[in-house]
Every structure is written in structure tokens, then in C-alpha cells.
């Protein structure tokens, strides 16, 4: 039994979601191999070889893999799939995009957002926005999974000594091409990996107020900034900051929800946080039912006060 983990990387380094996926792979048992598919991603492959518990890194390097197009990456994975019992992707935008394509071409079902490895063929995963946990068994010969990063500890990024083996890159499908990317620049910790997250909701009222209230608190705490869907839809915060069922799933040490009512869809994205703090002036807001510490107050006075007190 050998498990293949598809690395998420930016060509130069391995993204942290990969480390959580390696831990899930180790729990399944057997050898763990990592595929680094990209263009000029030698540094990422070298970094993958350092991850504790990885026995081999497969490095596919070619122009077809430069932008992680689903058609080409899926074909790359399929070219290697025969030797593996399990193929694991991190449940990131990249992993979710490619994994089902691989599963369908192997004619196997796929398990999404796995939160627990029960055995080599049985896994737990949340359904209905995390309101139920299903234990699911797969009878397929090759199991294709996406792994929820927050449910598994990160494997040590150092201490491994895997060999790096070059594999031939697939040809370009010719069906799709990358035009451009607009990546938001910021120096904050990445939302899904942050230890502390400060999240704002609709009650902030405008993009300016969102910035004015949330940013100083996040700066003070060294925290990442998140947002509810309402805040994103209203244009107060960027799309990729959305925490919830259909946004990012986070589980930091401390989650501070500011002016967020706590709809089911938002709770689905953050209720596994270790400590939840809610600041809201509505005593009946559902967020208080999951908050460890609730402060019933006007956020426009309470948050600046909090910044001062820290």
C-alpha cells in the first residue's frame, strides 16, 4: 500500500496545507510519496523531500504544469495513479479543482474534505455545513480523497530525507489556457494557517469601517483577517477572506468574531476553533451559542478599547 499526496506549492516552496495532508496520508499507513507538478519547481520538490514521513518525491516539470490547470494536472496524476492505493489532495481551491477529475477518470468515487481517517477504507467527513458527520466506506480499488487541513496536525517540514525522482511531464491538453492572476498582496499570516483570526461581519457597515476597526486589532494580535459572507457580498472585504461552508474552513487557537451574527453557513467554517470570542450588540445572536467568551457591546467602542487594553 502506497499513498500519493499531491503537493500544493508556489513553485518555490510547499504550502502548509500539504503538510496536513501528509499527516493524513501517514495515518492511512504505508509509504507516502509526494507529487510536485509545476514548472521550475525544483525548490518546492527539494522542500517536499524534507517533510518528515515522506519516502519519495516525484517531480514533474514542464510548461504544461506552470499554472496548475486542472486538465493537465489531472492527466499528470493519472499517469502515475496505477501504483497507488490512495491519492490525497489538500482540500484547497487547487485540490478541489483537480481531485474529482482524477477520480472520475479512474471511475472511482471521491471523498471530499475528510476530517478523520478511521481505517484505510473508512473516513469521516462533515455534511450539511458541518451539522452532521458521516462515516463513509469506500470499496474502490484506488481511493481519491481531499483532506481538510484544519483536522490534521501539520507534518514536520524538516527532518525527512526522501529521494527526488524526476517524472516526465504530460503534454498540454490544449483545451484551456491561463490568462492572468490577481493575487492579493498582504503580509498577514495565511487565513487557513493562522493561529489567531479576527473576522468582521455586516455590522461594520462599510469597507472603510471594516478596515478602521478590524485592522488595528489584527495588527495587535498578529492575526489574519477573515470575513463573513455578508461582509464580502457587501464589498467590505475581499472574496478570499470569506470564512464559512463555501469559503475557507479555519480552526485557529483564537477566533474573534466582530459584528457577525453567526449563521449556520459561517459557523461551519470556524466552529472547530479552540477559543471563540464574539463581540456583538445583539444578545440573541446565534454566535453567542458557540462563543467561549461573549461580549455584548457596540463593536465601534468595544474593539478600539480592546486594542488599547492589549
Amino acid at each position: 500500500m502506497t499513498v500519493l499526496v499531491i503537493a500544493e506549492h508556489d513553485h518555490g516552496s510547499i504550502k502548509s496545507a500539504t503538510l496536513n495532508t501528509v499527516t493524513a496520508a501517514a495515518q492511512i499507513g504505508g509509504d507516502v510519496h509526494v507529487l510536485v507538478a509545476g514548472q521550475n519547481a525544483g525548490a518546492a520538490a527539494a522542500a517536499a523531500a524534507q517533510i518528515a514521513g515522506v519516502s519519495k518525491v516525484l517531480h514533474a516539470d514542464g510548461a504544461s504544469l506552470a499554472h496548475g490547470l486542472a486538465e493537465n494536472v489531472a492527466a499528470q496524476v493519472l499517469s502515475l495513479a496505477a501504483g497507488y492505493s490512495h491519492i490525497l489532495f489538500p482540500a484547497t481551491a487547487g485540490g478541489k479543482n483537480v481531485a474529482p477529475r482524477v477520480a472520475a477518470q479512474l471511475d472511482v468515487a471521491q471523498l471530499s474534505d475528510v476530517t478523520k481517517v478511521v481505517s484505510a477504507d473508512t473516513f469521516e467527513r462533515p455534511i450539511y455545513a458541518g451539522n452532521a458527520i458521516a462515516t463513509v466506506q469506500s470499496a474502490d480499488a484506488i481511493k481519491v480523497l481531499t483532506v481538510r487541513g484544519t483536522a490534521f496536525d501539520a507534518a514536520a517540514a524538516q527532518g525527512g530525507s526522501a529521494s527526488v525522482e524526476a517524472v516526465a511531464a504530460v503534454a498540454d491538453s490544449g483545451q484551456s489556457s491561463w490568462v492572468r492572476s490577481e493575487i492579493a498582496q498582504n503580509d498577514r499570516p495565511e487565513l487557513t494557517a493562522a493561529k489567531i483570526i479576527v473576522s468582521g461581519g455586516r455590522a461594520l457597515g462599510s469597507a472603510e469601517q471594516f478596515d478602521a476597526v478590524i485592522t488595528p486589532l489584527a495588527d495587535k494580535l498578529g492575526a489574519a483577517i477573515g470575513a463573513s459572507r455578508a461582509a464580502v457580498d457587501a464589498g467590505y472585504a475581499a472574496n478570499d477572506l470569506q470564512v464559512g461552508q463555501t469559503g475557507k474552513i479555519v480552526a485557529p487557537q483564537l477566533y474573534v468574531a466582530v459584528g457577525i451574527s453567526g449563521a449556520i453557513q459561517h459557523l461551519a467554517g470556524m466552529k472547530d476553533s479552540k477559543v471563540i470570542v464574539a463581540i456583538n450588540k445583539d444578545a440573541e445572536a446565534p454566535i453567542f451559542s458557540v462563543a467561549d467568551y461573549g461580549l455584548e457591546a457596540d463593536l465601534f467602542t468595544a474593539v478600539p478599547e480592546l486594542v488599547k487594553a492589549l
Binding site: A93, Q175, V179, E182, A184
Partner: peptide, 15 residues
């Protein structure tokens, strides 16, 4: 919508 921002792809039809 991708992690960290946006990406634009061009595809041939059907798609």
C-alpha cells in the same frame, strides 16, 4: 476565485 485572489482562464467551447 482561488486561494489568495482571482485567476482568469480561457477555454475552448464546449466547456
Amino acid at each position: 476565485e482561488i486561494d489568495g485572489g482571482l485567476e482568469v482562464l480561457s477555454m475552448s467551447l464546449p466547456a
